[in-house]
C-alpha cells in the first residue's frame, strides 16, 4: 500500500527526514512512533503529497505521489495533527462539503455521510456548530471526514491527543473496528495506543527509521534474555547458591523481605526455566508465592531504541 524509498526532506535550517525507507502492506495497521520533532508529521505530509520531498520516491496504492498526486489523494483519508475544521460550519454541512471535495458521488453521498456519522458516534450532533463542540467530538468529526470517501489508506496523525481517557478508548475501539477494511498508519507518541492497536511498529528518530518490526520482535531484539521474578520463603544465601547451581539461570539481585521471604530477580535463557525453578523450590522445600516473567513495556523498548541511536551519534 505504501512504499517509501530513500526519502529526504530538508527544511532551511535542518534535515527533517533523512533517507527514510519503509513499506506498509495492504490491510496492515502500523504504528508510526517517534519523539517530538523526529520527523513524523513531515513524513505523513509527504505521504499525502502535501509537502514535496527533496529526494526519494513515495508510492501509495501503486501511484507515485510526485507524479499522480490526485490519484493518491483520492485513496488517502488523512487526519492532520491539529484536526483542522471550520468552526462556523455545522457537522452535517462540513461532512457534505468534504464529501463533495473528495468526489463522493451525489447519489451515494447522503448514505455515506450517515454511515460515517454512525461509525464515529456523531448522529446526534449533526446539526450542531463545530465551533461549539467539545474537543472529543471535533476529533471524531475529523475522523469521520477522513473516512467519508472510503479510502484504502487511513493516515491518522495523533488521533487521540487532547481527549479524555474515556474518549481515547472510544477512538481506539473505532480505529480497531476500521482495521478490516482499511490499511492504517497511526502516528503517535502515546505508546499504549500503539500497543493496543498496531500489528507492526515503525520508529523514527532524528529523521531516520531506527526500527521496523512487530512489537514482540522489537522486545526480543533488545532483550536477549528472560527476566524472572521470584519470591520464596528461604534463607537468602542458600537460595542464591542453589539457584546459581542450576545452570541456565543467573541471579541478578536478591533481597530480604519481611517475614523471612526473599525476593530474587533472575536472568534466564528461556521462559521454560520457570518450571525448573518451581521444581527446585519443591525439592528444596521453599514456600513459593511468586514466579513471574517480567513483561517488557513498549515504553522501555522505545526509550532504549531512540536513546541508543542518540548515543551512537
Amino acid at each position: 500500500m505504501i512504499k517509501v524509498e530513500g526519502v529526504t526532506k530538508k527544511y532551511p535550517a535542518r534535515l527533517a527526514v533523512d533517507d527514510v525507507s519503509f513499506e506498509v502492506a495492504n490491510g496492515e495497521i502500523v504504528g508510526f512512533l517517534g519523539p517530538n520533532g523526529a520527523g513524523k508529521t513531515t513524513t505523513m505530509r509527504m505521504l499525502t503529497g502535501y509537502l514535496p520531498m527533496n529526494s526519494g520516491r513515495i508510492e501509495v496504492a501503486g501511484y507515485d505521489v510526485a507524479t499522480h498526486p490526485q490519484e493518491v489523494r483520492r485513496r488517502i483519508g488523512y487526519l492532520p495533527e491539529s484536526c483542522p475544521l471550520y468552526p462556523e460550519m455545522r457537522v452535517d454541512e462540513y461532512l457534505r462539503f468534504r464529501a463533495e471535495l473528495k468526489g463522493v458521488r451525489a447519489s451515494a453521498r447522503k448514505a455515506k455521510i450517515n454511515e460515517v456519522k454512525e461509525q464515529c458516534g456523531l448522529t446526534e450532533v449533526g446539526k450542531r456548530i463545530i465551533g461549539q463542540l467539545s474537543k472529543g467530538y471535533r476529533q471524531r468529526v475529523g475522523l469521520a471526514d477522513s473516512l467519508v470517501h472510503d479510502p484504502d489508506l487511513l493516515i491518522l496523525d495523533e488521533p487521540t491527543v487532547g481527549l479524555d481517557p474515556y474518549q481515547i478508548r472510544q477512538v481506539r475501539e473505532l480505529i480497531k473496528s476500521l482495521a478490516d477494511k482499511h490499511t492504517i498508519l497511526l502516528c503517535t507518541h502515546i505508546l499504549p495506543e500503539v500497543e493496543a492497536i498496531c500489528e507492526r511498529i515503525l520508529i523514527i528518530n532524528e529523521g531516520r527509521i531506527v526500527a521496523a518490526d512487530t512489537e514482540e520482535n522489537l522486545h526480543k531484539r533488545l532483550h536477549a534474555c528472560t527476566v524472572i521474578e521470584m519470591e520464596i520463603l528461604a534463607e537468602l544465601k542458600a537460595a542464591t547458591a542453589a539457584i546459581a547451581g542450576m545452570g541456565g539461570v543467573e541471579v541478578r539481585t536478591a533481597r530480604d523481605l519481611d517475614g523471612g521471604w526473599v525476593w530474587l530477580e533472575l536472568e534466564a535463557d528461556s521462559s521454560a526455566m520457570r518450571e525448573e525453578l518451581f521444581n527446585l523450590a519443591v525439592t528444596e522445600g521453599w514456600a513459593l508465592r511468586e514466579l513471574s516473567e517480567q513483561e517488557h513495556s513498549l515504553e522501555e523498548t522505545f526509550v532504549q531504541i531512540t536513546q541508543n541511536q542518540g548515543a551512537a551519534q
Binding site: 499525502t48 483542522p84 471550520y86 471535495l101 468526489g103
Partner: peptide, 13 residues
C-alpha cells in the same frame, strides 16, 4: 486554522 492542509490533501487543485 490549518484547513489549508486538509483542503490540499483532497483531490482538488
Amino acid at each position: 486554522l490549518g484547513t489549508l492542509e486538509s483542503l490540499l490533501t483532497t483531490p482538488l487543485t
